[in-house]
Computed example of a mutant assay.
Amino acid sequence: MPIRVWDYLPEYAEERAEILDAVDTVFRSGQLVLGESVAGFEREFAAYHGQPHCVGVDNGTNAIKLALQALGVGPGDEVVTVSNTAAPTVVAIDAVGATPVFVDVGEDDFLMDTSLVEAALTPRTKALLPVHLYGQCVRMGPLERLADEHGLAILEDCAQAHGARHLGRLAGTMGHAAAFSFYPTKVLGAYGDGGAVVTSGEETDRRLRRLRFYGMSDRYYTEETPAHNSRLDEVHAEILRRKLRRLDDYLEGRRAVARRYEEGLGDTGLRLPATVSGNEHVYYVYVVRHPRRDEILEALRSRDIALNISYPWPVHTMSGFSHLGYAAGDLPVTERLASEIFSLPMYPSLSRERQDTVVQALRDVLAKL
């Protein structure tokens, strides 16, 4: 069978009984919307992070959007972030009427280059939005200092970093709020869309609960707009409750796969992931780099190995964001990475046999370049 960069079926085979029991639990509960499964997951996910509040929402994009709104970001404001990210990060900024301002990323770790952030600040800057990319955290110290000095909000994009740590602190506990995605491919993934915002702020929590539910605190009375329906589904919440208990096992499984890649590919021409000092990487994706990336991918496709590029187009080069006025060459590291990076299969249930097949195929292809 073809080898894909991600596959949920081995995990489902192992956890099927528990997943189906989660579904049955919701269907027998008598409440299908904002019931005990959502409330329970919110309590448990908040507790995992040592935070007082978690608000479940319908997807990771809206987690960012609603968190920005709850932090007071809106039209006329600027949000400093990166272009080397999934488009939803920036779509959410645009959705609240704010303007994304991009800084470049590091050559080795592909994360926000925090040394560039201060120069990007203007009187309109309202928030910093670091993206904990590929499974590890941005260096948060410089951002925290800038936020304190300039009165800025920090919203962490943790869609790719469930369980990652920076200097002992969990991703999602270093800003004023943190947005998570539970899209099925994520480290902690639902069986469909889902998201959440974690925060220590009581008012932020209150606003988030209104904003995900038509701006209402009580049914039928809207207190603030713009707001819409962004509730986390009960079924996905109950599945996430079960999977949250396994999260640390998932992390160890991913790290084991990463160790085997390092052993099998460390002496090839591939540039393997570099872990930032003080970080505990969770390997949401295993991103490698090679200047002849496209030739490698084509050769692997001929062997029924389909890999992925995360991401082939920097956000600032997309036509949907041409109004921001960025030009080719404005973010040279980000643009260079887009032509060289690609992702190897990475999920905890990836068998040794299939991983060995990928490693050997890569070694064969690289030896012929």
Rank of each mutant, 00 (worst) to 15 (best):
G97E: 02
E42A: 11
S29T: 04
K65V: 02
T99V: 13
G56H: 00
P88F: 05
E36M: 04
C54I: 07
V80S: 04
Q31E: 11
R28S: 11
D94Q: 15
A67S: 14
P52I: 04
V55L: 12
F27A: 11
L71K: 10
P52C: 00
E44D: 14
Q69E: 11
V90S: 06
I93W: 04
T25W: 13
V96I: 09
D77G: 11
T25V: 05
A47T: 01
E44M: 12
L34K: 15
T61D: 05
L32I: 12
V38P: 00
T99Q: 13
R43Q: 14
Y48D: 03
V79T: 07
D94H: 07
Q69Y: 12
L68W: 03
F41V: 03
E36Q: 12
G56I: 05
T85H: 03
G50H: 08
A98Q: 00
G97C: 02
V96C: 05
T81S: 01
G74Y: 10
V33T: 12
S29E: 07
V96A: 00
V33H: 08
H49G: 09
E44L: 15
V57Y: 04
D94F: 03
G76W: 07
D77L: 09
V80E: 03
T89F: 12
V79F: 06
E78Q: 14
T85R: 06
T89L: 13
